[in-house]
Design a protein around this nucleic acid. Sequence first.
DNA 1: TGTTGTCTGATGGTATACCAAAGTCACTTA
DNA 2: TAAGTGACTTTGGTATACCATCAGACAACA
Lengths: 227, 227
Amino acid sequence: MMTAHDDLKIEQMPQTLREIVLGRMRGAILSGRFASGERLVERTLCDQLGVSRSVVREVIRILEAEGLVETMPNRGPMVATLDWSRARQIYDIRLLLEQSAAAACAESADAATKAKLTEALQAIAAAFTSGQSLTLAEATTAFYRVIFLSAGQDIAWEIVQRLNGRISRLRALTLATSERNVSGLARMTRIHDAILSNDAQAAALAVRDHLTEAASIAERLLKSEEP
Amino acid sequence: MMTAHDDLKIEQMPQTLREIVLGRMRGAILSGRFASGERLVERTLCDQLGVSRSVVREVIRILEAEGLVETMPNRGPMVATLDWSRARQIYDIRLLLEQSAAAACAESADAATKAKLTEALQAIAAAFTSGQSLTLAEATTAFYRVIFLSAGQDIAWEIVQRLNGRISRLRALTLATSERNVSGLARMTRIHDAILSNDAQAAALAVRDHLTEAASIAERLLKSEEP
DNA sequence: TGTTGTCTGATGGTATACCAAAGTCACTTA
DNA sequence: TAAGTGACTTTGGTATACCATCAGACAACA
């Protein structure tokens, strides 16, 4: 149903400068544009982004609360570093939350949810064959979003997203690892199938295997690069 | 060993104004000094706190990221409200994390940990008898902190603390509820005993019962006050 | 009565100034 | 030569003034 006034709608919704800068800086950290441990000098950022210190400082507070930035007294903010003991904890928490969400989703999934899930899986498959790791990460995120939101667990989803941000560098590497390509799609398919057959236990098991493997790959990568 | 220069030591170690204001405002929200849904006008806060807008704005960004404050476009920040569907999710997540932490703690607890746990339990018992609900909340927090940190799960502890902040009003009411006083201490003691006998499964079960009861009390309170 | 214009208050955004703390580095002195 | 000293620079912390925009209230007017 398309009426005349729809054409007049303002597209550019009021996105504040702060949100733009937040997205820009978050992306810069997640993509590795700002290296792990790199200092974030306020005035330099102001120049690079073309905004005032007020905006930069508020954005840094948000990133700090998200765990992406750490601030040392009288030294200023720097990109948070990640050691294996922390990464392991994050994988453990993700395991708990994602198992629970997958089980809940499997129990309550209706036809619409299943359709969305299949669609998301196909996007992942496409990203696998095309080999674009950025697309793959987005498709994987979309897959899990369907699981969490259809299970009515939006707060858990927020937490998982935040945790994923903190291990984003690892996650990108893990997804790009070749061994993952072999079995990764198969494991995602297993999760998908379990939910489609409303088998909560199988879904939880599939998630467990998937995450356990991801964690072990991450461990090897992390320990190999900085021992 | 007391030497002359010890007298010259500056007591007030570098706590930034921002941290002070953050603690003050967080406390004001958690204690109900700022009502749920109340608007937080920046310049009014500046007057009340005696600081500049820069500080207030940065603190609001932090509280926003913590989920204690919600900001509507062109309306400004307000204290976040809590409905049962969200509170239920928070109790579910706490259940997962606290069960896991209690089990891990039970498996790995050594003598020192057990001693600290017993000490924390005694503090809870003292708070129960004295009937001070603020002290009780702090003692309960300390009890769980021992569990999480001795299990090496400091990230999960961060998450639980943040979630507890969002349901703090409920939590205070729950702890103060009389039925809880009857069984509450018994349940905490059950958790304590399970960990001291290194029985992971019993610890997880005790936590589950404890939280399930807290959630059901919270549900009644929340649904009775705003249906 | 309903529309319109105006006004006020609050926010978002920016720039700037000042101060304090910490690091740097050359210079002086024992 | 080596240690200490003091000035300079960088950076973070805080305060304040200014402007644009938006929402809600309210009065004037047709």
